[in-house]
Nucleic acid binder design. Structure first.
Lengths: 205, 205, 205, 205
DNA sequence: CCTTAACCGAGACGGTACGTCCAGTCTTATG
DNA sequence: CATAAGACTGGACGTACCGTCTCGGTTAAGG
């Protein structure tokens, strides 16, 4: 009913073409230079729009970078749902690691950087990116608890933090590269050994 | 013999007073504003020195911030060495968490994130801050392995990464605050449950 | 015959209300800020009309300011016609001086300013304001010549220029204020009497 | 004694080269476009200097235009001093008229009109340009009074205003062109002779 | 009465210039 | 030599208006 056209007020409608050109250009420049050398003027020039148009819709470079990331990055890893919660965790985390290892990773790092002095941006990032992904992990882990793969008193939040945090740490602190072969398996395995239920040990005697 | 004065060439000697004033001012400004609004001109003004003097000794804001951090922050947590490796880990990690939760944390965050576009700075940070601390954790864990607190096939590096990384993640991504009561205990406990050797289970009937 | 209504084609007729609101707002803003800070956007905002509507009817700020002046200013000084041409001159020039000394003066100055880079505007100003007023002076002076108040070989145009020009000079160059008491009398008297010494004229006989 | 170098403090001295380039460019652009389209950015581009450098030394376009005019225009007409005050007046006024008729005139017009919204600029113009010239006229006229060329009770100020004002009026209002042949003679003559008929003066013995 | 043309408001668009801040480089006088 | 002071080029900032361009919605005249 209240379709898009109906709810629009008076005045020339916003140009989706300009919007897209800006977000495209922003994402490209973020990939190329990082946020340090990311300038609104650069985005305007590359996108063929006017600076005014950018400032009309975004309050600053943080917000623009944020939205460029959301619009372009393949942030949505497919949600696996197999019989094994462990395998599903592996799938999800591998997907994120792969995207962090590429261009998206550089942009994400930029966003987080910008967020340090711009709480609003970091907040949006939390809501739009971090929380949904964490929720997905939570769901899988809860499933594992229910079907006996994980011990019943496992603290889900802590496990999520350890798993997800490792990704950010490699992205930002760079102890070791994100694409190091096997690291994710090793990481998960070691985390899970604490998560698996203790063997009942009745086999002794 | 070759005392400091003797090995000095001609000309006015470097003013330690200026150096200290610069590093002090830099650290203060870093605390107050974060690195985003940290400017060389600001440091010059606050310290009462000339911009030239700063540029003579540091190549850019990253390097200056880095050195200001190293000069001021209480980065050296005392190395505990009790009978219990687990207790020692707890002591060290708590110490770091406390410093990250305060002003030092803001500065560290600035440095790390500046490093995203300035590999040289990040490299120095690794060498001067990250590696020494990681080494300390490694030492403690190895000790735990030797005295039977931890299982023998524990992958040390992975455990170090999980423990240390959690700190950086809370600092930078801010899932949850660094001073949340009890979080570190919970975190360590859960990590260690996988690290502890399996009970021999002979206790079954 | 072709009365106003009849010669109008189809379509919504021009809104006199909008027109008046625009001219009113324009005049006010001209008084308040001068032409330098006179903006079309300001006029639109103050008048409650759309920028489009202004641009539909006026080519630019010069023309709009011009018309605002013509519509509002009390540019038409009553034409005196007494027995004395000198007294009539005085009346007219005093009237202009008074209007120049107030808000109208500021607007006139703005128009002249705009005209420097906009010959069309200055041309309109000449036709609508300057020439009619000069003609009025010419008429009075010619009358004075005919009735012997002025000498017969007086060059009318030059006298008009001297009289009228003095007003503009005080308005624009501001040697002295336009409302200085007595200045206009002194000015007129000296123009009438000249600078050369009167011959001693054995006025006797 | 206290020569220029001696009284200078520390720091890089101001570049006269930059200063000259700016004033040259400013004057050219003023001639070409008038003050309306005179932009600081344009001056920076043409002069090859940075905008900052301009803003460091001049508060705005008015002041810059002002100084460009003073630096370049041939504002100093030679001061004649012959036996005839009338002839001297003619010489001075002709000189000014000639300069007003050319490029200098356009720049002067810009300055004067810019001054309408910028009292500081107009004040400087008065002090540096208007007053010195008016003083020169005053001197000549006083001389004429002393040697009997002009009547003793002549109001000097009024005559100066009438003469000088005619020039500005032609420059700004453009009743008629400044280079109209013979106009200045006619103007001066009529000012000297006045409008009233000469008394018949039994010019006989 | 119902098209059709011209109006009106609102407001987004590509632009130009503004005046400011800071980056880095340089030049000079002083210690 | 190092230093304080400060002028220099240069790039980007965020803002204000420009003049143009869609839009949705009036308001008459004329078919």
């Amino acid at each position: 009913m209240t379709d898009k056209a109906a709810m629009r007020g008076p005045g020339r409608p916003r140009s989706d073409q300009a919007r897209d050109a800006i977000l495209d250009a922003a994402f490209q420049l973020l990939e190329e230079n990082g946020l340090e050398r990311f300038t609104i003027e650069g985005v305007a020039a590359r996108s063929g729009t006017a600076k005014t148009t950018i400032y009309r819709w975004w309050p600053g470079k943080g917000a623009l970078a944020m939205e460029a990331l959301l619009a372009h990055a393949e942030l949505t890893v497919p949600i696996p749902h197999t019989a094994s919660a462990v395998a599903d965790l592996r799938t999800v985390l591998d997907g994120i690691a792969r995207s962090f290892a590429g261009a998206t990773g550089r942009v994400v790092a930029s966003i987080v950087l910008a967020g340090q002095n711009d709480p609003a941006t970091l907040k949006v990032y939390h809501e739009k990116v971090v929380e949904p992904r964490r929720q997905r992990l939570r769901d899988i882990i809860e499933r594992g608890k229910r079907n006996g793969e994980f011990r019943a008193d496992l603290h889900v939040e802590t496990l999520v933090e350890a798993m997800y945090g490792a990704l950010y740490t490699r992205l930002l602190i760079r102890f070791s590269p994100l694409d190091e072969p096997g690291w994710m398996d090793r990481h998960i395995n070691q985390l899970l050994e604490g998560a698996l239920p203790r063997p009942l040990c009745s086999q002794g005697a």
